[in-house]
Lab assay of single mutants.
Amino acid sequence: MGFKLLSKLLVYLTASIMAIASPLAFSVDSSGEYPTVSEIPVGEVRLYQIADGVWSHIATQSFDGAVYPSNGLIVRDGDELLLIDTAWGAKNTAALLAEIEKQIGLPVTRAVSTHFHDDRVGGVDVLRAAGVATYASPSTRRLAEVEGNEIPTHSLEGLSSSGDAVRFGPVELFYPGAAHSTDNLIVYVPSASVLYGGCAIYELSRTSAGNVADADLAEWPTSIERIQQHYPEAQFVIPGHGLPGGLDLLKHTTNVVKAHTNRSVVE
């Protein structure tokens, strides 16, 4: 069995187990497998329904001669939608809004960016022009300005110390501490036991640490421990890039980060 097929099978099995364990909360999309990078042309966006009122959005972007996937989250909030992270750029984010209108038909009224990198804030200006209120932590807003990236308009308070959590509509926002970046936030959907790890969490097929220019490698494993301790009931975990899975993604990420750190020390 090929690795790609095995990865998709694991996603399907995880979703099936969740649907059985929580039949009222989960209505997993039966329309197909989780979209992969090879299936999404740059400039297009796919939506994948995880649970009743919960979707991931998947886009792709060219970077350094390669094409990478990027995940975000959409959560229903009454007759409105909360968006977590842009679709990595203005063109993708405009396509995301169009796809949401086509498939869901509810307005996106608020959006949260989970850290300051372009795959999370690139497209904020498109959201703002569409009347979406954009939010991020003060740290993310400051770092985005320093980096020359787009800056969300509103500040999220109460997320300055490791372990801080605040309720934001249908989700809980959690600051686990520094990891992929010093400002990275985690998003949890309690009604569906869905954990969105953003770039602080890796997919299972990833074996290298990737972009760690703004990471705190020493603190990252401790931050992941905080996530595990705060959300032990999480059933569906979405990484910032690639295929979702279960809580095993947290341990896998820790292993990859520690291996990278150990290699760096040896070198």
Rank of each mutant, 00 (worst) to 15 (best):
S62Q: 13
E101W: 13
K91V: 14
S30T: 09
G245C: 02
L204K: 13
D29V: 09
G122F: 04
V257T: 08
A21S: 07
N92Y: 04
D52G: 10
A234K: 03
V121Q: 00
Q61C: 06
V28A: 10
Y196E: 01
F3S: 07
Y68R: 04
Q229H: 13
F63S: 06
S208P: 08
S205V: 11
G32F: 12
V108Q: 01
I100F: 03
C199Q: 00
A218P: 12
Q49N: 08
G123A: 03
G32C: 14
T36G: 11
I74M: 13
L96N: 00
I238M: 13
G246N: 06
S27A: 07
N149L: 13
R141F: 07
S7L: 05
V112W: 03
S162N: 09
V67K: 15
F116K: 04
W88D: 00
F26P: 06
Y188W: 13
D214Q: 14
P107Y: 15
R46W: 10
S161Y: 08
K258F: 05
T140N: 03
C199M: 00
L81Y: 01
L127N: 00
L83C: 03
T222Q: 13
S70M: 11
A136G: 12
A130I: 15
I74L: 08
P244H: 07
D183M: 00
L82A: 12
V28E: 07
F116Q: 03
L81M: 08
S62Y: 10
I186E: 01
P176I: 02
P170N: 07
D214W: 09
N184C: 01
Q228D: 07
V171F: 02
S191Y: 06
T222I: 10
V166L: 10
P69H: 15
D29K: 10
I104D: 00
R167Q: 07
E44Q: 11
G131V: 04
V212A: 09
G122C: 10
T253Q: 01
V42Y: 11
V132K: 02
G246I: 03
S30H: 15
I186D: 00
N184M: 02
S162I: 11
F168T: 02
F168L: 09
Q103F: 15
L82H: 04
A144Y: 04
L217E: 06
G53C: 04
S137M: 09
I20S: 07
S208D: 10
L96D: 01
L5A: 07
E147C: 15
L24G: 08
S22D: 06
V256K: 04
H230C: 05
V257N: 05
S16N: 05
A218Y: 07
S113E: 04
L47I: 09
Y68P: 01
I151E: 06
R226A: 11
P221T: 14
N71D: 02
E150I: 05
E145M: 11
A259M: 11
H57A: 02
A51W: 09
V256Y: 02
R76A: 13
P190R: 06
H180E: 00
D248L: 07
L156Q: 04
V146K: 08
V112G: 03
N262H: 13
R46T: 07
T253R: 01
S62P: 06
G245Q: 03
Q229Y: 09
G148E: 11
D77M: 12
G43I: 03
G123M: 03
R110V: 12
T36R: 09
F174Y: 15
P107C: 04
Y135Q: 01
A234H: 00
I151L: 11
V194A: 07
L250N: 00
P152D: 01
I17F: 05
H115G: 00
Y188Q: 01
G197C: 05
H230S: 08
V45D: 03
I50V: 10
S162E: 10
A95E: 12
A59E: 11
A51F: 11
K258V: 10
A111P: 03
A95R: 12
V42S: 15
V189P: 00
G131M: 13
H252N: 14
V266E: 14
G245D: 06
P170E: 10
A111Y: 12
G177C: 02
S155Y: 11
D125C: 03
H57C: 01
Y68T: 14
D85G: 00
Y188V: 05
H260M: 14
T114R: 00
